[in-house]
């Protein structure tokens, strides 16, 4: 959702560090301006919503 992924909630649920798990995979999306961190959440930018499948694929 536009509010993004609550990273603390994700880490509580999975017992792993999000950045350690996905930091490298998400780096191209960060550099391309498709995702951004807002407070404690990782969210798609307006540009990222157009390219969301590319972002999601990088996490699979």
């Amino acid at each position: 959702m536009n509010q993004g992924l609550d990273l603390a909630a994700w880490e509580r649920r999975h017992g792993r560090a999000f950045d350690q798990e996905f930091g490298a995979a998400l780096e191209p999306s960060r550099r391309a301006g498709s995702v951004e961190q807002r407070g404690g959440s990782l969210a798609l930018t307006p540009k990222g919503r157009l390219l969301s499948n590319q972002v999601f694929m990088s996490l699979l």
Partner: peptide
């Protein structure tokens, strides 16, 4: 997205 925002509909996901 813009037309709906102008009409007061908030985008909550893609």
């Amino acid at each position: 997205v813009q037309a709906l925002a102008d009409a007061g509909l908030e985008q909550y996901e893609i």
